Amino acid sequence: QTVVIGDTTYHLNNPEAAQQIAKELAKKYGLKVVISGNTIKLK
């Protein structure tokens, strides 16, 4: 699972954790979560 935040890319072996982290950050910073395949992007 790949999480992309701005110009930073994180690789996590746990998809659920990756999605949870993405949701928390999106909520905290008012970002939009875009999931395509096994890549999660925060914009």
Rank of each mutant, 00 (worst) to 15 (best):
Q1E: 05
T2L: 11
T2P: 04
T2I: 13
V3K: 02
V3C: 13
V3T: 03
V3D: 02
V3L: 14
V3G: 02
V3N: 02
V4W: 08
V4P: 02
V4T: 11
V4D: 03
I5V: 06
I5D: 03
I5W: 13
I5Y: 07
I5E: 03
I5M: 06
I5K: 03
I5P: 03
G6S: 05
G6F: 13
G6T: 03
G6M: 07
G6A: 05
G6K: 04
D7I: 13
D7R: 14
D7H: 14
D7L: 13
D7N: 14
D7A: 13
T8P: 02
T8N: 08
T8R: 14
T8M: 12
T9A: 07
T9E: 05
T9G: 02
Y10A: 02
Y10R: 01
Y10M: 07
Y10T: 00
Y10L: 12
H11P: 03
H11E: 05
H11F: 13
L12H: 04
L12N: 00
L12S: 02
L12M: 10
L12R: 03
N13L: 12
N13D: 13
N14M: 08
P15W: 15
P15D: 06
P15S: 10
P15V: 10
P15N: 08
E16G: 08
E16M: 09
A17W: 12
A17I: 12
A17G: 04
A18R: 04
A18P: 03
A18H: 03
Q19S: 08
Q19V: 12
Q20H: 09
Q20K: 13
Q20N: 07
Q20G: 04
I21S: 01
I21E: 01
I21M: 14
A22H: 00
A22W: 09
A22S: 03
A22R: 02
K23D: 10
K23M: 13
K23R: 13
K23I: 09
K23G: 05
E24K: 14
E24C: 15
E24V: 13
E24Y: 15
L25F: 05
L25N: 00
L25T: 00
L25S: 00
L25I: 06
A26G: 03
K27F: 08
K28N: 02
K28F: 10
K28W: 11
K28M: 08
Y29D: 01
Y29A: 02
Y29T: 02
Y29K: 01
G30P: 02
G30R: 08
L31A: 04
L31K: 03
L31Y: 09
K32I: 14
K32P: 04
K32T: 13
K32Q: 12
K32E: 10
V33E: 01
V33I: 14
V33Y: 06
V33R: 00
V34L: 07
V34P: 00
V34R: 03
V34S: 06
I35D: 01
I35K: 04
I35T: 04
I35G: 01
I35Y: 09
I35F: 08
S36T: 10
S36V: 13
S36Q: 10
G37M: 05
G37L: 05
G37Q: 04
N38P: 02
T39H: 04
T39W: 05
I40F: 05
I40M: 03
I40N: 01
K41H: 13
K41Y: 15
K41R: 13
K41E: 12
K41I: 15
K41L: 14
K41P: 00
L42V: 08
L42A: 01
L42N: 01
L42T: 01
L42Q: 01
L42K: 00
K43C: 15
K43V: 15
K43D: 06
